[in-house]
Design a protein around this nucleic acid. Sequence first.
DNA 1: GCCGTTTTCGGCCCGACTGTTTTCAGTCG
Length: 580
Amino acid sequence: MSEHVIHFSNQQVAQVFRDIADAMEVLGENRFKYQAYSRAADTIDELPVSLYDYLRSGTLGDISGVGPAISAKITELLTAGTIEFRERLRAEVPDGVLQVVRVPGVGPKTALRLYRELGIADVSALEQAARSGQIRALKGLGPKLETRILEGLAAQQEAPNRFLLGEMLPLARELVAGFQSAAPMLANLSYAGSLRRSAPSVGNIDLVAAATEPEHVLNAFAALPHVARIETLQDGSAVAQLHNGKQCALYVARPEGWGAVLSLRTGSPAHRARLFTLAAERGFQLSDRGLMRDGALVPSPTEEVFYAALGLPLIPPELREDWGEIEAAQAGTLPQLVELSDLRGDMHTHTRWSDGRGTIAEMAAAAIAQGYEYYVITDHSFYMGMVNGLDAARLKQQRAEIDALNADFQRRGINFQLLQGSEVDMLPDGSLALPDDVLATLDWVVASLHVGLRQERELVTQRVLNAIRNPHVDCIGHLTGRKLLRRQGADLDLDAVFEAAAETGTVLEVDGAYERLDIDAELVKRAVTSGLRISIDSDAHRAVDLAGIEYGVLTARRGWASRDNVVNCLPWEQLRGGRN
DNA sequence: GCCGTTTTCGGCCCGACTGTTTTCAGTCG
């Protein structure tokens, strides 16, 4: 067998450097060294151009954060397929230990001790040790840590082998585009499944292709550069393992059945069950091949045609959960869902003034490119030392910079306005991190929980209620504080929160950062139903994050939000006029 | 290990909380 040359995506290379950084941190290496690897990984992740192009032109060193050492290691990986330094680290810190570090409550020091002193080299050994009380035997570690570890593991295991929407959607789009150009015989191609419903986390990528000759399509699929190997292959479908460890399934339908097959591969099990019932009521059968009557395929080349055959208008993929969309479709009351292009501004963003990476000018340029009319800078409030939060004095300085930029936009005839806000912390004691007279000077105030998320229900709820009732607070940012696949949000009394927000008109945010997507679709639906207004924000820390607001839009759509429910679909003047 | 309008060495993100201590290390945001 000939040597197969592996093609690494930038994201795969970034992951290798992240692993190097984590392993070095576990080994207690110099902090600045492993941070350099970690920073380089972040930069590589965002590069618009393949590393192979940099390699060919000898310009790896031009990448910010990539110096001689990392440049040599990238070259080694791309040409030899492996990095010797990485393998040496692996000998000291097994891959399983890197997983152990990512368990909440366990840091690099503890992971190393658990490995060296108890031989814990993966998460299942960690679970066993925590369960059997072995961890408390180590000096300085106790029963509370064991409980914390088991809770953390439970949160992770609720969703084994799941990946975030923000990782999978770009990958799926890349696959679809690559597949389409490699296989001109495809009549149609789409991704499907929970990914197409924009679920916050998904297990794999499902593709549904339309073609008359499935074998050709399956061969072209197996030859895609992303595909590492084909796991299963049977008539009309294949499951592939990708180079990045993720799984992709392909289903090939006949062009005249594609609409039905795509619909069946997209809806949730509950939605699909409704479709089966509707089909049966109309004398159809549904199968892997599509819509059938008396053993013959009934043409349904598109989803419109398929849904029409069942007496329904086309239901947007995000709604296909059986949360009432079938009834709404039958009644003709499906919502006109909000779209990315409806957004006129972003209400929650950061800059270098706190923990962001971009300057105000850089973020503004990206906002103009995104087509916004306004853009609110909401850097952190003073309380969070780590994020370099702003106090009254620095807010004043920042206001001067914003004013100067706005004057410049006006001079140049650019219809764009920067606004100054704050992401003000709700402190553990129930107060806000900035006094009212300072909040009063701001254009938009987002209040968020960052600390004390594990406070007991009554306490943490009261903090949120205090913020909602503060007349200067316009919006509650990422309400629950959840981090997808990592930690649950705060234990909030949502009835009380929604009731208070309805009284005061306080906006609830859909944070588009794809590890948050908070509030989630179910809460969006609840907000929309109870007449609350939402905002959709990027929570951007870098210019490249602005586009991530799309995940917020998808989440809002999943929650049945229309343009009328979303404050930042309004022009700023109108939005400000309607403030409480 | 990387970087530079503080430029080839010296600095790079730091404060609060937690669980375990008995004066603090580790984790988190």
